[in-house]
């Protein structure tokens, strides 16, 4: 869509009214904060950050963590799509390889051997959550990440899973297995 630009009239071209309006707005806020003591943080949260934690809204994009399913099993199957899509290359997955541990739930075939997110690199864009075909990674509400070394800010699989908690939702591998069990034996007995 192309927005037509209106030609400016003389007052607008002179820029003076804009300056005056700018001053009006800034003065209003200045006065309100300085003399009435009202601030955005005070109005919305009732205080300032470290003492009064900031309440984040629904859908806030905080730190990405891995989640477990209803049975406490790792949902991630190491498909590495998040690693691929991650713009700052913050995610690094070590696939299980042929002799790695199988998935800790039945029927899912694999899970990552190691899953690392470098929180110093992460830009909280949410692409990993969006691309995940397993609903295994979610941007959660943590916004205050801190550590005393760079190594500490690289979260490994255990830490991500511990922080992520459990998540309800689809259980397609279980459903597949149930379906397979319900069907007659394979190959079907000759009749």
């Amino acid at each position: 869509m192309i927005v037509e630009r209106k030609p400016l009239n003389l007052a607008e071209r002179l820029y003076i009214p804009a300056v005056a309006n700018g001053f009006k707005v800034t003065w209003r806020h200045f006065k309100r904060t300085l003399f009435e003591g009202r601030t955005a943080a005070g109005d919305t949260a009732g205080g300032f950050h470290p003492e009064v934690p900031w309440r984040v809204g629904e859908g806030y994009r905080g730190a990405p963590y891995l989640v477990r399913d209803q049975d406490g099993a790792t949902k991630c199957v190491s498909c590495q799509l998040c690693e691929f899509v991650c713009p700052p290359k913050a995610i690094r997955i070590t696939p299980p390889g042929p002799d790695g541990a199988p998935a800790d739930r039945r029927n899912a075939e694999k899970m990552p051997r190691e899953f690392e997110i470098n929180m110093l690199r992460c830009i909280f864009c949410g692409y990993c959550q969006e691309v995940c075909p397993e609903e295994a990674i979610f941007l959660q509400r943590d916004y205050s990440l801190s550590g005393t070394s760079r190594a500490e800010m690289i979260y490994d699989k255990e830490k991500l899973l511990a922080l992520g908690g459990a998540h309800a939702g689809l259980r397609k591998w279980k459903q597949k297995e149930d379906e397979a069990r319900a069907q007659e034996a394979f190959p079907p007995a000759a009749s």
Binding site: H29, R32, T33, L34, R38, T39, A40, A41, F48
Partner: peptide
């Protein structure tokens, strides 16, 4: 400080 006051901060 001025910027903070103008932007509703402290």
């Amino acid at each position: 400080k001025v910027s903070a006051f103008i932007q509703d901060r402290v």
